[in-house]
Amino acid sequence: MKTTNYVLITGGSSGLGKELALQCAAKGFNIILIALPGSNAYSLAKHIRIEFDIEVHVFEFDLTNKTILAEKLDFILENFEISFLINNAGIGGTVSISESSFEALDNIIQLNIRSMTFITRRLLPHLIKHNKSYIMNISSMAAFTPIAYKTVYPASKAFVSSFSLGLREELQGSGLSVSVVYPGPIMTNSNVSGRIMKQGFMARLGLLPTQEIARIALNKTLNGHAVIIPGLWNSISYNLMKMLPLETKLKIVSREVRKEVELSF
């Protein structure tokens, strides 16, 4: 019989997903980690079990494989009670679209949009039966404007934003609260960190420690906030961008991203 409630975290082996797992564990949540094969998930799970004395289960597979995704979710839902879903897994990149392969673009769409939508829809009946449950979807500050040299990524994160807020409204009156988080740049690994540093001073203003992003996102989600923008500068930037014409903010943001592309050659 399923009695213990879990938080399910996608992309949970590193970066923001890892920090969310650690902070959920510190709050006493039992955890299900979904990560790519060969990731750090099993080592992280062992550490969490020892430090926090909670249950942690790991499932390593590619979320873009819809057949395996369906099979794994069926198994998880048959064996575990989920009361909190964190859709954190995502992928991006900076490159001229003419230089990007179709496979790379399709991977962004499949991971950031399709798998997130499928997981949410599959878990909804199980989440909504609880008196209180939560969904945290990770979008990005990039969702607020189109960006040259990223193109598909901000579009995918705008989807996450729109989907989350529409779902939240649809679920008003239920015990299920949906939150969407818009982090600025995150230094998740050496490759990403290098790309952020190339974008210049303006891009670095929005940087926050990953632990702080996770803390803000988790606390505000559990307090029922709809829109979560971690960091003072990111909040200021969001409000300033709202006042600018689309063409102006598109040029401002794209100019900073172009620096990264030019310095890569």
Rank of each mutant, 00 (worst) to 15 (best):
V253K: 09
K46C: 11
M136F: 07
Y182K: 00
N88I: 03
K150Y: 06
M136R: 05
Q23M: 10
N239E: 14
T248P: 02
K249V: 07
L222M: 00
G11R: 01
G175H: 11
I54P: 10
E170C: 06
L33D: 09
H47N: 11
P230G: 08
V227N: 15
V257M: 03
I34Y: 10
R168E: 14
I229C: 02
Y238W: 12
I128M: 11
S83Y: 07
L240D: 02
M197G: 07
A70N: 12
G28A: 09
A143W: 05
M197L: 15
S162F: 07
V181E: 00
Q110T: 12
S193H: 05
V152Q: 04
G206K: 00
F75Q: 14
G17K: 01
I236L: 15
G231H: 00
V58G: 09
A104F: 13
S164W: 01
D53P: 07
Q211P: 05
V95P: 05
E247V: 10
I34A: 11
E51I: 10
S43E: 13
E262R: 04
R215L: 11
N234C: 01
S100N: 07
S179Q: 08
Y153F: 15
A41K: 04
G166C: 09
Q172R: 08
S14Y: 13
K150G: 07
L176Q: 00
F61M: 13
T117R: 04
P185K: 01
N137P: 03
R49N: 14
V95L: 13
N88F: 03
H57P: 06
L22Y: 01
R258A: 14
A45T: 02
V261F: 05
H225S: 15
F29Y: 15
A217N: 08
F52Q: 14
L218Q: 08
N79H: 13
T221H: 08
P185M: 02
K132Q: 10
E71P: 07
I216S: 05
K129P: 02
E262N: 09
I48V: 14
P154I: 00
I113V: 13
A41Q: 08
G28R: 05
S190W: 08
G206P: 03
F80D: 06
I147Y: 03
S193W: 01
F144V: 04
G175M: 09
L105Y: 03
A158E: 07
I252R: 00
I76V: 09
D106Y: 11
A21T: 05
I31C: 00
G15N: 01
N88M: 11
I97C: 15
I236W: 13
N5Q: 09
I86G: 12
N30C: 01
I213N: 00
V160T: 03
I109S: 06
E256F: 12
L246F: 13
R255E: 11
K251F: 03
N88E: 06
V58P: 04
A226R: 03
K150W: 03
Q172H: 07
A89V: 05
E169I: 07
H57Y: 13
T117K: 12
L36R: 09
S13P: 06
L105T: 04
S39C: 10
N30G: 03
A217S: 15
K18T: 01
S254A: 06
I138A: 01
G12P: 11
L44F: 03
I97M: 15
H225K: 15
Q110Y: 12
M202D: 12
S174E: 07
Q172G: 02
Q23C: 10
Y6S: 06
I86H: 13
M116H: 10
L176V: 01
N131V: 02
A45E: 04
N87W: 14
Q199R: 14
